[in-house]
């Protein structure tokens, strides 16, 4: 499979897609109990709307930390696939984490950057990607050679298939429309953590 290399793209040339649709397409491919770490706000909300998987973690408020959390989990559980979903504003806040991921090179990590060019949840102010910064170019510069833009939905699916099957780390960047999430996650941090830890086998069920 060569989904990451067969269609070199720039941010300007790729299709503008739906976050909810892409999240659903990705989640539908998770058959090996892969863990998903959702980034702040809208990325989380559409992950929540894509099904209440036990292996999903919804991070509340710690803008930019989805990738570091996913890296820590990928180190602790090297046999499990780990996916970080992160907004463009959030990844811009913690760009150094891309260099850390590149230097650790976890084989089981996929980062998906949800680039709508704005801080959508705080009112749609433009981010640096909306003003010309290219996350794939930044990721490559940080040492993540397996980073690419998804040209359209079909290409995104091919890339996800490759990333879930072959050694990472991987980074897929997608461009998004301005559609807002319809529902929001629960806001109970302990319940989120506990549910997740049961889902990934690190906390026994209540009473067992």
């Amino acid at each position: 499979m060569t989904a990451f290399s067969n269609r070199p793209q720039t941010r300007d040339s790729v299709k503008i897609m739906s976050r909810l649709d892409l999240t659903k397409r990705l989640v539908a491919k998770l058959h090996k109990h892969e863990a998903v770490i959702g980034g702040i706000g809208n990325t989380n909300f559409d992950l929540w709307a894509s099904g209440r998987r036990a292996e999903n973690f919804y991070m509340l408020g710690s803008m930019g930390l989805a990738v570091p959390i996913a890296l820590g989990l990928a180190i602790a559980q090297p046999e499990r696939g780990v996916i970080a979903l992160e907004g463009d504003g959030s990844i811009l806040m913690q760009l150094g984490s891309l260099a850390t991921v590149a230097s650790r090179a976890p084989k089981n990590l996929l980062i998906v950057v949800m680039d709508n060019g704005t801080y959508q949840i705080t009112g749609g102010q433009p981010t640096a990607t909306g003003l010309g910064a290219d996350i794939v170019a930044i990721a490559k510069g940080a040492g993540l050679s397996q980073a690419a833009w998804a040209a359209d939905e079909g290409h995104f699916e091919e890339m996800a298939d490759q990333a879930l099957a072959e050694p990472g780390p991987w980074l897929i960047a997608v461009r998004l429309d301005a559609e807002k999430p319809k529902i929001q996650t629960t806001r109970d941090p302990v319940q989120i953590r506990s549910h997740f830890m049961r889902g990934i086998g690190t906390q026994p069920a209540w009473g067992s």
């Binding site: 930390l65 959390i69 989990l73 499990r80 984490s97 850390t100």
Partner: peptide
């Protein structure tokens, strides 16, 4: 790590993963 916040995130993910 490039920032201390990153280290907190990594430690949180690792803890949830059993490390």
């Amino acid at each position: 790590c490039t920032r201390e916040e990153e280290a907190v995130g990594i430690a949180a993910g690792a803890w949830m993963g059993g490390m």
